[in-house]
Design a protein around this nucleic acid. Structure first.
Lengths: 207, 207
DNA sequence: GAAATAGGTGTGGTCTGACCACTGTAAACG
DNA sequence: CGTTTACAGTGGTCAGACCACACCTATTTC
């Protein structure tokens, strides 16, 4: 029964190894040759496993040095998938809609954790034209303090920007209104300000 | 300049090849040996690329037959990542919070496109205990008609399930309340019903 | 003639050995 | 003591070999 693929078994072994030795990001894992010997498999099989994990962004290899565990949290794999998937028109509309929804979500999150100081600083930045739209929302999303959520937004942002939509010129005033609404902790007003910012009306009636 | 890794180049080539030939899921891609020859690289490098894509779930290989493009939609990569990544507690909380937020989002989406027939059918299914929680929400999310959003939820669901949280026993009644609220197009009532279903209260005050 | 069989071909799966490019370090040198 | 050099270890790549398996086809068998 040579049923199971060796490289998958190696992936599994590696996972256990990492867990057992409590390895963290930055730590070195055994060399390909050593793994090959220890696990009684060919080096090519080890490499297949490592390359797969590398593409997933779980490890990092440096020639002449070795293979290291990576900080998983920036899983770029979704972007990889994105370039494979996003194609038809409906998908584009979905991106736009989803991005808007997510942005409203973290506006609500921010409402719960309003930090007037940070918002004030942000206001100054807008005043000095220091930020573009992405950067503005990135500042906000950081306040929401949810890493996973940030990731989703970052990916959506990339998707969105890759759509090459005609850029709408926003006026600074819209951002001010939004920030003020946040400071006032007024959800309705905040979301209204957002809709105005994005020129939303019909489709997103409830949003 | 042997800078770029060959296997990454192969991944890229494959992507272009798939795009150019308009290959869809189920289609066969050239054999390892043929790719090796056509791209002037060693077969082992081709294999490294293919194994990586396989682990990502983008292709499927069948010994004796060949390598085929897979239906991307079934993202099993999440499980892999899940077991690798989700470690610290904050990350887990983020997953939970995010999943809840997303679910509320598509409840709102559904509110805009209420289809009483479908909701009625869903009600019957719940009545007959045909669905578990995931399936219930999957039915709802389909009504929201946003593929990208569905994908995000599916991923979150997988993450969530890989957390191995103690299962809360939901009672059917909560689902009924939720469905009724949807049918009535009452946003407040819908979200309240959802919170009750998930036993949310404090943290998600605004939600 | 139809069905069962055997063989051939093509495919992925794995291993081995070889060589290259690069890094870090210890030994040799000045 | 500082600099240079040589070497060992590591990842990167390739070529060739063999195995296991799936499929098709020609042959045999009934």
């Amino acid at each position: 029964m040579t049923n199971k693929k060796v490289y998958l078994e190696i992936v599994k072994q590696l996972r256990e190894m990492i867990s057992a030795d409590n390895l963290k990001s930055g730590d070195k894992i055994p060399s390909e040759r050593e793994l090959s010997e220890r696990l009684n498999v060919g080096r090519s099989s080890v490499r297949e496993a490592l390359r797969a994990l590398e593409l997933l962004g779980l490890i990092e290899t440096r020639r002449g040095e070795g293979t290291f565990i990576r900080d998983f949290r920036g899983n770029q794999l979704v972007q990889l998938l994105g370039t494979f998937i996003l194609q038809d028109e409906k998908a584009k509309l979905d991106v736009i809609e989803t991005k808007n929804i997510i942005e409203m979500d973290f506006l609500r999150l921010v409402l719960n954790k309003v930090d007037k100081n940070k918002l004030s600083i942000l206001k100054d930045l807008v005043e000095d034209d220091q930020l573009n739209d992405d950067q503005f929302f990135y500042q906000l999303i950081e306040m929401a303090d949810n890493y996973l959520f940030s990731r989703i937004w970052l990916i959506l942002k990339d998707y969105y920007n890759s759509l090459n939509l005609s850029k709408v010129e926003y006026n600074r005033n819209s951002y001010f209104l939004l920030l003020e609404a946040l400071i006032e902790k007024d959800e309705q007003k905040t979301l209204d300000a957002y809709r105005q910012l994005r020129n939303l009306s019909i489709l997103t009636d409830k949003y």
